[in-house]
Design a protein around this nucleic acid. Structure first.
Length: 360
DNA sequence: CCGTCCCGCCAGCAT
DNA sequence: ATGCTGGCGGGACGG
């Protein structure tokens, strides 16, 4: 049935498929793009749908990003579907607070030691920031007395903060996700819970890594992967690196890629009734592959949204369009050093893909 | 084989 | 009921 597709691009298709890498859709990458998207000027509000569309990912992923970023004050929830951009400048403040809290709670863990039962958890008190001046709220119903917060006991937001606290309060700057999970689970080392916790920690660690807040390394002896705290200076770097450029022309990123418009539909992408109306500029690619650095925006979703792993995929040959959109997406103009290096490995894939394109 | 971790189901709460 | 959130863990991917 869905096999023979007399098309020369058939090979390109498979190549694209084999070129595809999970890394292209990693949370870390998503966050990088997210940050880049909203760090411009005093970016104001962040609409979840807007972000999802712009970044080419499903809504669900935006929640992950936003929850983690909120844990260190980069964004703040404004309301339904809406977050506000606070910026990196807010991070040091948040970190200080977190450190203070952490010290107070003495939630730090020790490196591989029988832990004393630390009844961490959150108390039903506190947790009311409400700071954030400006806020033109109608000054009414703005005090969430925070009751029944038992739900967020497991929130990514809290986990993220606790993870940060560990770095801020621990004497040892190398922390493994296992130790973190163990510490955050108090003591019950139930393998199942541990596993789940670690899974979440991976997400958080990836996000912070992509922000250069922490760095992945490994413990000299054990060789076990661990994370090292880098601090907010690194973040500042990321944030200030584009202090001048601002936007030469308000031409944001034409990332209109296969936007999964439908809410939570699943599988296949049926009709992508969108013709990618990319900016203008010819930029017919075919030579940018010689410039590894400055890889800018990374496309989020893989081409055939669901064809990659689902069964009922109908090979659409609308790839051409996507290719074009991707080409227009690639705009070598911003050169963030750290991000560039961060995306170094990714750039390879990028280039290879272009090479393939060219061949075709 | 195992460390990572993407994906999206679906429970809970809000509207 | 519809829509927004976001735990949670199956199982695919990469080394």
């Amino acid at each position: 049935m869905s096999s023979s597709y007399a098309m020369v691009s058939q090979d390109a298709e498979s190549l694209a498929l084999q070129t595809y890498s999970r890394k292209e859709k990693s949370l870390g990458l998503l966050v990088s793009n997210f940050l880049r998207l909203y760090n411009r000027d005093d970016a104001d509000l962040i609409g979840l749908d807007h972000a999802a569309g712009k970044l080419g990912v499903e809504r669900r992923r935006i929640y992950d990003v936003v929850n983690i970023l909120e844990s260190i004050g980069i964004v703040a929830r404004k309301g339904k579907n809406m977050y506000s951009w606070k910026g990196f400048g807010e991070v040091p403040r948040s970190l200080d607070k977190l450190k203070e809290e952490g010290m107070r709670e003495k939630l730090c863990i020790s490196s591989s030691n029988n832990s004393d039962k630390v009844l961490d958890d959150v108390e039903r008190e506190e947790s009311s920031f409400s700071l954030t001046p400006d806020d033109q709220e109608t000054s009414s119903s703005s005090k969430i007395v925070s009751f029944a917060d038992q739900k967020k006991e497991k929130s990514l937001w809290l986990l993220s903060q606790n993870f940060v606290k560990m770095f801020l309060c621990s004497d040892d700057d190398l922390i493994t996700l296992d130790s973190a999970a163990k510490a955050l689970l108090s003591d019950s080392q139930d393998p199942v819970h541990m596993r789940t916790k670690v899974r979440r920690l991976y997400d958080i660690a990836n996000v912070f890594s992509s922000m250069n807040l922490i760095e992945k390394t490994q413990i000299p002896e054990t060789k076990k992967p661990a994370y090292r705290w880098l601090g907010s200076e690194s973040i500042a770097e990321t944030g200030t690196s584009l202090f001048n450029s601002d936007e030469p022309k308000k031409r944001v990123f034409g990332t209109e890629i296969t936007n999964l418009r439908a809410k939570r539909n699943k599988t296949d992408c049926s009709s992508n009734g969108k013709q990618i109306g990319y900016k203008k500029h010819d930029d017919e690619n075919t030579e940018q592959e010689s410039k590894p650095a400055a890889s800018k925006y990374v496309f989020g979703p893989s081409f055939p949204t669901g064809a990659a792993s689902k069964k009922n995929e109908n090979v659409r040959k609308g790839r051409l369009q996507e290719i074009e959109s991707l080409a227009s997406t690639y705009k070598p103009q911003y050169c963030n050093k750290e991000i560039t290096s961060l995306l170094g490995h990714f750039t390879e894939t990028w280039k290879r893909w272009y090479a393939e394109l060219d061949r075709k």
